[in-house]
Design a protein around this nucleic acid. Structure first.
Lengths: 229, 229
DNA sequence: TCAAAAGTGTTCACCGTACACCCATGG
DNA sequence: CCATGGGTGTACGGTGAACACTTTTGA
């Protein structure tokens, strides 16, 4: 029947995930020690190969789940890397995805069941292949997204303090924020619910907890609102 | 030697180009009537397949050149599309690229040697497969890029009038610009050279021609400047 | 009572936006 | 001399940035 594509080359398509987590002060990424050749023993992003009948988004979720037990998190396709010699083992392309996860919710299972470990992006460990390039691109993308879409909350617990939110944005944007201006800005966006509940772990006075109100945000967006930090 | 990847699936990787041109008032894209199955006779983006030992960027340039005779133009990778049934002929992925070209410089050869034809993006012709989705994504990307990077000039002749530049941005952003504010903004960026030369085709008085000064722009960027329209 | 973090408003400079008239020229 | 598009400046409101003191409470 359809024969027109027969002469074309088929290629191995890998998929690598840049998994971001936020831990009090720093943006972290999840890395594993590669346990097979080539480059066995070196640090690497979490990755795998696309299957014949699989959407890239599905593959990204499958690989993430298989290697970390994590599922149902924010993921977005980043870029497809195709340097001919990027993997010395064999010619592969790799489509990179990045994910945002709440570290607290996933830490235990990660440490116990899997070899994955968190590294601060400020340490910038050396990775195999073109994975450092992937991480750099992911960080830039995250920066641009985080100021124009409410995705930062994916990195925080459900309930968080203003201070935590500020620290998060300072880590993402790599620049200090003015406390009052930051809070004023967040409040003017009017997409958080202030809870009648305080976090008492950080001070005697305690600080109020907030929650992102997705319904309110969606309604405002339908009404022409744009999130902007 | 290295055998660890052997069991993985290999997949056909296509590449499609969204080629933008600007013609007086409208943003156009270059399309061809597909002359092979499946979907023979329908409108399609310009595309081809990635070869085993080829970088995607190279492939994009090769395909563009082969099907249009165009080379050395601005191109950027957009996204990799992977719906399992996106091509009814066979399972393929497609990485989309978009290109910006100066229509005038390329029009003749296009019309004569190739089957490619320009269509206004406002007409939104129906395309095969997921190509409409690709075009939509390319337009959004172009919008975001054009206001933060000086790529719009790629769509204009080397020498252009302020009016042409304004029309271009109106077409890209799909919104009318105020003449004085637009010119003020452009002038405040200070990256154009005003030539001692007028375009006499549009009025009795004639309008001055300008040129983008890439050296000046690069120098300013090194100095912390960011282009912003 | 004191140490430590939480919480809270105002002022000012700058930028984006709205807006209308004169100029130059060829026919 | 007139019709046509080219070219120019200002005033205002809103937004972003700088900035310091009071409150609460557990030890």
């Amino acid at each position: 029947m359809l024969t027109s594509y027969n002469k074309e080359d088929k290629i191995l398509l890998a998929l690598d995930c840049i998994i971001f987590g936020f831990d009090k002060n720093d943006l972290n990424i999840l890395l594993i020690k590669r346990d097979f050749e080539p480059e066995k023993g070196k640090l690497s992003l979490i990755g795998g190969f696309l299957k014949q009948s699989e959407h890239l988004d599905e593959a990204a979720n499958r690989i993430l789940f298989t290697l970390t037990g994590i599922q149902n998190v924010y993921m977005e396709q980043l870029y497809t890397f195709s340097k001919v010699d990027r993997d010395p083992g064999e010619r592969t392309l790799s489509t990179a995805y990045y994910a945002l996860i709440n570290i607290e919710e996933h830490n235990e299972q990660l440490n116990q069941q899997f070899a994955a470990q968190w590294y601060s992006i400020t340490e910038a460990p050396e990775l195999i292949f073109d994975h450092n390039e992937m991480v750099d691109k992911a960080i830039s993308r995250l920066r641009r997204r985080a100021i124009s879409k409410p995705i930062g909350f994916e990195l925080l617990p459900e309930k968080f303090t203003m201070k935590q939110l500020q620290k998060l944005y300072e880590a993402i944007l790599d620049e200090k924020q003015d406390k009052r201006n930051f809070i004023n800005k967040i409040n003017s966006l009017d997409v958080l619910v202030k809870l009648n509940e305080k976090d008492m772990t950080s001070s005697r006075k305690g600080s109020f907890l907030y929650q992102f109100d997705k319904e309110k945000y969606d309604a405002k967006v339908r009404d022409g609102f744009t999130f902007k930090i």
